[in-house]
Every structure is written in structure tokens, then in C-alpha cells.
């Protein structure tokens, strides 16, 4: 969780070619063209033009919580979002808006973005307005991806908060043969994606007090539609955020991009 000025991030991404395998799939784009694209996108962003009429916005949930003085929803923001979107745009043909799109859970505009990402929910403390906003969002057809929360304490907090949102639905395991895991890439194993300070350097990959396994869970509605995907004991966001770094393990960033894209493609078709 290091915050850099946005232009610096983008230039850095362009200059490094994003190192990881996800960038190697297309050899047609050299560093210069990536840089040019990034700069052009930045100009568009400033003018607001690029935002209009896009199909997909990587929307991050802004919610009430606490992480000292820093709001927990903002972890890895916006670098992880923007870097992930570059991968999404290069690996798929989703017409995705290139930049971050944070929206409050109690903001009526939330319903305009059917895909929602939220992390560090172990520190989530939703207001009544946010509960109502998120509930109506999910029941109307929105798709929520939860990421980067660890151990039982944080689980309990999330379980309590989501229970206030969807009291009538249960959290269940998502089986490995679920279409979510084959919606774009075939994913056969759920990896524990570490944050930059842990497994990335070769040590333990968990942030729990004791070793813990990554879990992929979900909440389905009465028609069997997946409303919420819960990535527990893993940190996909950090893998997106540090993918350009040579020292960040390819294995984790590759998995994080695959699962992230699968969740988006699934969320856009199911």
C-alpha cells in the first residue's frame, strides 16, 4: 500500500511494459505505444471525454470503516485499479474505462455500475444508508467482489456487515467447477495471493495470526445467481498493484489477473 502520483504510475507502467506475463500476450504494443496510450488516456481523462459511454467501469465501493485515519476502502487505490484495468483492456476486448471509479454505497449512482469491488472489509462498518444502498444494488442485479481481508476476526466483521445487508442469504463455498472459474481462463487452483511485504519476498503468504488457506466463497440468490464473490485470506489487489515490479512473483500476479478477469466476465454475463 504505497501511494504514488498517478502520472508517475502510468509512466512507470508504460516504461516497464508491466513485466508480468499478462503483458507478454501481445507483442504488438511496444513500450512507446503503451506510453503514448497511457498519456492519451490521461488527457482524455482530464477532459472527461473518455468516461462517456463506456461499457465497463471498475467501480470501487466507498464505505464507512476505519483503518486509523485512512479509510479502509481506499487500500491500494487507485494504482491497483488502474493497473488492473490496463490488463483487462489488453487481455479482453471489454470496452473498459481506463481509470478508477470510486462510488459510495449510499450513492444512487452506484446502480449505474453493475460491477463493484470492495476490499479490506474486515474494517467495514456500514451506515444504514449504505446497507440499504448495497442491498438494493445486489437485489437489482449488481455483482460484488470482496477482496483482501484476513483471518477470523475480519471474517466475522464482514459476515456481520453483509448479514445486515442480505440477512436472508447465506454465505457458501464456491465449488471449483463453478462457471466463475472458467468464464475466461480455466482456473484449477485457488492461490493465496500475498501482499507486497510478505510472500512476495519469498516468505509466508498469509496475513493471519496462524497459517490460513485462501477461500473462495459466495452468496447466491434464490434463483442460484451469484451476487457476491468473497475472496478471503488473499489479496488480489496487491498483485494488481505491484504487477509491474520485477520482484513481485509472476505466479501470484498471473493468478490475480486471471481470477479478476474471470470475475468481471462472469459478472457481465451471468
Amino acid at each position: 500500500m504505497i501511494l504514488l502520483p498517478r502520472p508517475a504510475i502510468l509512466l512507470l507502467l508504460g516504461a516497464t511494459g508491466l513485466g508480468a506475463s499478462v503483458w507478454s500476450v501481445s507483442s504488438a504494443h511496444d513500450d512507446a505505444s503503451v506510453r503514448e496510450t497511457v498519456l492519451k488516456s490521461e488527457q482524455d481523462r482530464e477532459s472527461g471525454r473518455a468516461r462517456l459511454g463506456r461499457e465497463f467501469y471498475f467501480t470501487r465501493a466507498m464505505y464507512r470503516g476505519h483503518l486509523g485515519r485512512y479509510p479502509s476502502w481506499k487500500v491500494d487505490f487507485p494504482k491497483a485499479d488502474v493497473q488492473f484495468l490496463i490488463g483487462v483492456r489488453r487481455l479482453t476486448n471489454i470496452d473498459a474505462y481506463e481509470f478508477e471509479n470510486p462510488v459510495g454505497l449510499d450513492d444512487p449512482d452506484l446502480r449505474k455500475y453493475p460491477f463493484l469491488y470492495a476490499l479490506e472489509v474486515g474494517r467495514m462498518a456500514l451506515s444504514p444508508g449504505e446497507i440499504e444502498g448495497l442491498r438494493s444494488y445486489l437485489l437489482a442485479g449488481g455483482f460484488l467482489v470482496i477482496d483482501d481481508f484476513w483471518d477470523l476476526d475480519e471474517w466475522r466483521n464482514f459476515e456481520y456487515e453483509i448479514g445486515r445487508v442480505l440477512p436472508e442469504y447465506r454465505i457458501v463455498d464456491i465449488p471449483m467447477d463453478h462457471p466463475l472459474l472458467s468464464s475466461f481462463y480455466e482456473i484449477e487452483e485457488i492461490l493465496q495471493v500475498p501482499n507486497r511485504g510478505l510472500g512476495a519476498a519469498g516468505g509466508r503468504t498469509w496475513e493471519c495470526w496462524n497459517p490460513c488457506d485462501p477461500e473462495l466463497r459466495g452468496i447466491f440468490d434464490e434463483n442460484g445467481r451469484l451476487m457476491v464473490v468473497i475472496n478471503w485470506n488473499t489479496d488480489l489487489g496487491d498483485a494488481w498493484e505491484w504487477v509491474e515490479q520485477p520482484w513481485y512473483p509472476w505466479r501470484y500476479s498471473n493468478f490475480a489477473y486471471k481470477l479478476g478477469i474471470n470475475m468481471i466476465v462472469y459478472g457481465m454475463s451471468h
Binding site: 461499457e55 465497463f56 479482453t92 453493475p114 442485479g141 468481471i264 457481465m268 451471468h270
Partner: peptide, 16 residues
């Protein structure tokens, strides 16, 4: 459909 779109998701739900 030539690209991933929410129209696919909601159309499928509408006629499910």
C-alpha cells in the same frame, strides 16, 4: 455479442 457487455447478463436474466 462482440464483447463482454452487461446487456448480455441482463437480457439473460430477463428471459431466464
Amino acid at each position: 455479442e462482440g464483447e463482454p457487455r452487461f446487456e448480455v447478463k441482463f437480457l439473460r436474466r430477463a428471459v431466464a
